[in-house]
Design a protein around this nucleic acid. Sequence first.
DNA 1: TTAATTAAAGATAAAATACTCTTAATTATT
DNA 2: AATAATTAAGAGTATTTTATCTTTAATTAA
Lengths: 145, 145
Amino acid sequence: MRVISKSGEYGLRALLYMASNQENAGYFNIREMSDELDISFHFLTKILQVLTQKGILQSYRGPNGGITFLKNPEDITLADLIRALEGDDFFDKCLLGLPGCGERQPCPMHAYWMSIRNNLKTEFETTTLADLGNDTRLKQFRLIA
Amino acid sequence: MRVISKSGEYGLRALLYMASNQENAGYFNIREMSDELDISFHFLTKILQVLTQKGILQSYRGPNGGITFLKNPEDITLADLIRALEGDDFFDKCLLGLPGCGERQPCPMHAYWMSIRNNLKTEFETTTLADLGNDTRLKQFRLIA
DNA sequence: TTAATTAAAGATAAAATACTCTTAATTATT
DNA sequence: AATAATTAAGAGTATTTTATCTTTAATTAA
């Protein structure tokens, strides 16, 4: 089950990395992060730009510039991040992909899937980056098979 | 959230259709089904072939041929169907897409995601086509916006 | 003024997905 | 035996999505 795209994966990895290296102070240099996380610099830059536009991160140009959190990690939920990178309707799609499926015209899977989807949504909405980042320091951001 | 591919959607729609029209007896003609469900005949044929190879359906060639259930709808779970069409590792993938992520080398999201994933898996493993097909007769297989 | 950085937009490449076409095999009917 | 109706199988094509790269602009520090 591919739940999120590469953009989502990279964004999540980047934010977890940042959340677990907050002592860093100042701005995170994107080039360094992209090296560290083994993500294409330009691709990562674009992803972080989106998160900046969505009000999750804050950027600063010029020497010693970079990015940092605008909202605190305690206030950024997994759902925020995923909605920003995968689209606002992420948690609202019909399992069968039928156009027009909804309360008024439910598809055969509607009620069943909605309940599952809502559980997932709740889970993601109540988990913050801080929750995840806490003991992340010890863990792997890059695993090589 | 796109959980399943078009193949998965089409396969699920087709099986729900069949499960809710069992009085039909005999074999379901694929051409008719593809018309009814508005799915390309050749594409649907291929999907159903996979399900036949996986031992979920049974086919019969020649005049009045078609497909029917090999296993009973009460014995086909959503998980069976999805595994057949999306791959056996559907419920086992790392949220971050990291190679080598597992118990021995967990990624930062591992424990968290595994628990969510397992709930979903259990849900899908305990829901059969019969459960879903029961009152499907009344519902829409094609919704037009 | 220069160098270091992110911003932005567009171009390209690669991969995955979706779909189509053709031919073969099987079966019923005549 | 011949024909027509079907699914099987595999190859081929098209489309879409995802990922990446390139270039230029804007901003800032030194």
